[in-house]
Amino acid sequence: MLFINKLISLKMVAIRFFREVINNRYMLKCLVIRDLKSRYTGSFLGIFWAVIHPVITVITYTFIFSFVLKARLGPEAGTNSFLLWLLCGLAPWLYFSETVQRNVQILIENKMLITKSLFPSELLPLSILLSNMLNHAIMFGIIGVAAVIITKKLTILILYLPVYIFLLSLFILGFSWMVSSMNVFLRDIGQVLNVLIGMWFFYTPIVYQPSAVPEGLRTLLKLNPMYYVVEGYRLSLLGIEQRHWKGMLVLFVLGVVSTIAGGFIFKRLKPDFAEML
């Protein structure tokens, strides 16, 4: 009974949140545009930096891993192009890490809005998420085209990509809510997160294949949510037909749990934001 009550109240909270998003859609739009603008105004290449940055990163990694370390992709990689394969894994990672790292400070940055008006602060992390999503959508487009040209095949699996993007976004949103609200109380969270993300990158099979990890440690790899994300992106972009459902299910559960948990933490801490800022 208690569980059902909880579920109903959860539904109410979710409905209220969606209503709030709809009521404040203009503000959300403004916040997203501001974020996009602030990132690129005054720079000559503007929005192209959204592409230039990951491309340069990928070229550097490709040079190091492919040419210096002579890493070769196994048959399960789906492509021979190390660059393309890396790009598929790196794009979601950048989406995740950039959004979270930016969001951890977002409440502190908008201190004036929170302390001096009744501002729906939960929209701030959402706005950064949306702005980054737009940013990376450009990337996904480019990668998609590159994948089709290089692998010379276009499978139905590419339709899974939006699903993965959505599930990853859910995960990021919950994670952002959690770290941003906690960072208000404990500014060390931001620093811890930077260290964590720096390490997390290497514990996620982005620059290496999961198969390269020793058998015994592979289960450990599966504890990492980003493992499923990177795998899922690769599977759909490179058109590898295997293990889709399992990974997606795990990711779905992770996304929902993260959103609920993050939302819960944020909601609990929100009344004291004004005081702590």
Binding site: Y26, M27, S117
Partner: peptide, 9 residues
């Protein structure tokens, strides 16, 4: 934009 946002809040 600020006025509109304020109204939304």
């Amino acid at each position: 934009a600020n006025v509109l946002m304020n109204g939304a809040i």
